[in-house]
Design a protein around this nucleic acid. Structure first.
Length: 264
DNA sequence: CGACTTAGGTTTTAAGGTCT
DNA sequence: AGACCTTAAAACCTAAGTCG
């Protein structure tokens, strides 16, 4: 599965030169970005590059499965004195879901109830910071005293600081935007399209048409099971588009010929 | 700009295992 | 020896394509 993901990624055209990383960093504040970028750029590139090759042969799991000693608070939470880090994360999330502790307006934020507050010492925490906060509660087994796992990277602090204040504003902005532009204006449909829908409507917005096409695709189960973006045309679709199959992303393109231009 | 779709990459953290 | 990969979680974001 993951192998597939990698392949797809390259297919789609993600560049290896750190462009993706850059896009991501954009979300954060710009000042720290530069140093950061250098770091993650290199790393990311190498990672992605070799991942492709190595993923296939690597499956054995690293040191994450190793049991770690848990802080008293975490012991209380999990009920056991030792647990693999991955298991702790798992339990945490099941607890969060069970108690419905995700902030509805930003589900990456976790509202801490008393139990979590005891663990993290904050009222709310985002999912990324949570992982970091968790580090204070997970100790190596061989360390008798409560020495938190050594934190090697100071630079990384900057990263999550970036994460802290970058976070959602951008997204919110996006969400808030909204409002109608003229894109929703109905456009005259081709006869073939009118016939295809069979509702008698002769004009619909592009978005509406796309929506209905997808409804039809789903109703008739026309998505290629091995790649759901691929649409296998049935007779009706074939008549409409005159092709055997198409990529879901190109619906819009295919529809072009079925919109009569107002001026025409 | 935003309507619509899906797949999947990215983000965080840790340290041991594995590969070069 | 040192670089890189592994695990878990969920949400977000991006990609193409079109239009006024």
């Amino acid at each position: 599965m993951k192998k597939m993901m990698q392949m797809k990624a390259t297919e789609i055209g993600y560049e290896e030169d750190g462009e993706t990383a850059h896009i991501k960093t954009e979300e954060g504040e710009d000042d720290e970005e530069e140093e950061d970028e250098e770091d993650s750029n290199e790393k990311g590139t190498a990672k992605r590059g070799s991942k492709k090759q190595n993923k296939e042969s690597k499956k054995r799991g690293g040191g994450f499965c190793k049991l770690c000693r848990l802080s008293p608070q975490l012991q209380k939470f999990t009920g056991v004195p030792e647990l693999a880090r991955t298991e702790v994360v798992k339990q945490l999330w099941s607890y969060i879901r069970e108690k419905n502790l995700q902030d509805p307006s930003n589900r990456r934020n976790i509202i801490c109830d008393d139990t979590l507050h005891a663990l993290f010492g904050v009222d709310s925490i985002n999912m990324f910071q949570m992982n970091k906060a968790l580090a204070k509660h997970i100790w190596p087994l061989d360390l008798d005293d409560a020495a938190p796992v050594k934190s090697t990277q100071k630079e990384k602090q900057r990263k999550q600081e970036r994460e802290e204040d970058s976070d959602d504003p951008k997204r919110k902005k996006k969400r808030q935007k909204g409002g109608n532009s003229g894109f929703l204006a109905p456009l005259p449909l081709s006869d073939a399209l009118v016939k295809f829908f069979g509702t008698g409507e002769s004009a619909l917005s592009r978005a509406d048409v796309v929506k209905r096409i997808w409804e039809y695709i789903k109703q008739n189960n026309l998505q290629d099971p091995s790649d759901k973006r691929r649409i296998i045309c049935d007779k009706k679709l074939k008549e409409l588009f005159d092709i055997d199959s198409f990529n879901g992303f190109t619906v819009s393109k295919l529809l072009t010929t079925h919109f009569k231009k107002a001026e025409q």
